[in-house]
Structures are given as C-alpha cells and as structure tokens.
Amino acid sequence: MNKVPMTVAGEAALREELERLKKVDRPRIVAAIAEAREHGDLKENAEYHAAREQQSFAEGRIKELEYKLSNAQVIDITTLAHSGRVLFGATVDLINCDDDTEVSYRIVGEDEADVKQNMISVSSPIARALVGKSEGDEVVVKAPSGDIYYEIDSVRHV
C-alpha cells in the first residue's frame, strides 16, 4: 500500500467532505430515490435515474476518500527540522532566472493541489525539482514547454 502524503489541513478537508457525503448528501439522495419511485414506471423516470446516478457518484467518492484517509501519511511541517531546505508543506518563493519574475508555491499532497492558489502537488515537475534544495540554489524545472530556470529566494515552513 502506498501512503498518500497530505498536510494536516488537507486531511481535515477530506474528513469534512467525507462527513458531508455520509451525513448530508447520502440521506438526501436516498430520499430523492424514494420520492422518484413513488412516481411509478422506473424505466422512463428521469428523476429516478438522475438520483441513482448521484448515488453512484457519492458512494464512489466515499470509498475513494475512505481509502485515501486510511492510507494517509499526515505530515505536520511545524514539527520538522528544516533549516531552509525545501520539504513537503513548505512555501517556496522563486525568481525566474530568465525574466526576474517572482512566484510562490506551497508544496502539498495531490488532493490539496490548486494552481490558482499556488498550491502544487508534491509529484509535480516543479515540486520534484525543488524538494531537497535550499535557499539560494538554482533549479531546473523540466516542463513540457522546455526547461525553466529558477533561483530559490526563500523557504517558509508555516
């Protein structure tokens, strides 16, 4: 079994979603199926088929979340000794060596990744290039569009 790395906040978000699916969505869907059954012929009952599809999706997501949580490796970065090195959970400020633009990324688990919030998966090309490096190091990110050169400006473990 492979462990699924995630931050403390990521685990809490998955647990919250699981609770909502079990305690709110599941009962609502069961009620919708029961109501749709009362309308008669199930072969031509669109509400029934839509509710069954929702139930299938919800049950699949519940199983997926339970698997991920049972195999979670929750990493609390505040307890790690880091000394300026890039680790899982760190926020890294980068300077693009070509055009001097700055960008910050936080390295998180796959389920937490959200590029719009500058949270990247630990398995992404950028994160793989950064992990283990230190402030001041230059890194090469092997991107589909070509190599990108960054300098690590600072590493924060918040």
Rank of each mutant, 00 (worst) to 15 (best):
K22F: 06
Y150N: 02
P125M: 02
E44Y: 12
A13W: 00
H157Q: 08
K142F: 09
R26T: 15
Y150R: 04
R20I: 13
A12K: 09
R156D: 11
V158Q: 03
R26Q: 15
A34L: 13
N71D: 04
S154T: 15
K43Y: 12
D100G: 11
V131E: 00
S56H: 12
G40S: 05
I126C: 06
R37F: 09
N96F: 03
A129K: 01
K3E: 08
E112N: 07
A127N: 03
L42S: 13
G40C: 06
I29E: 01
S121W: 02
S104P: 02
D114A: 13
M6T: 11
E38G: 15
S134F: 07
E135T: 15
R106C: 07
A113Y: 04
E135N: 04
D111K: 00
D41T: 06
T101H: 07
I120E: 01
G89V: 06
R37Y: 12
H49M: 10
A90Y: 01
G10H: 02
G89L: 04
R61E: 07
V155S: 01
E112M: 07
L18R: 00
A58V: 15
A90R: 03
I148P: 00
R37D: 13
S83E: 15
M119K: 12
A58C: 14
D137M: 02
A36G: 09
V8W: 00
T79F: 03
D137E: 06
V92P: 02
N71Q: 12
A113R: 04
Y150F: 14
E64Q: 12
S154M: 07
D153C: 09
F57E: 11
E138T: 15
E17A: 10
P144E: 05
V92Y: 03
Q54G: 13
N118R: 11
C97H: 07
V24F: 10
E64P: 01
I29P: 02
F88P: 09
I120D: 04
M119E: 06
G109R: 01
E112P: 07
Q117E: 11
V108W: 00
D147F: 12
S70W: 07
R156H: 10
E19G: 05
S154N: 11
S123R: 06
I107L: 11
Y67M: 09
R37P: 06
I75W: 03
R156I: 08
L80E: 15
M6Y: 05
A81R: 15
S70F: 09
E53P: 02
D93F: 09
Y149N: 10
E53M: 11
R61N: 05
V140A: 08
P125N: 10
R20A: 11
V131G: 03
F57A: 13
I152L: 01
V24Y: 09
A13P: 01
D41R: 10
K63G: 13
I62C: 06
D111Q: 10
K142C: 08
V103A: 07
E19K: 10
R156M: 09
P125F: 03
G84H: 06
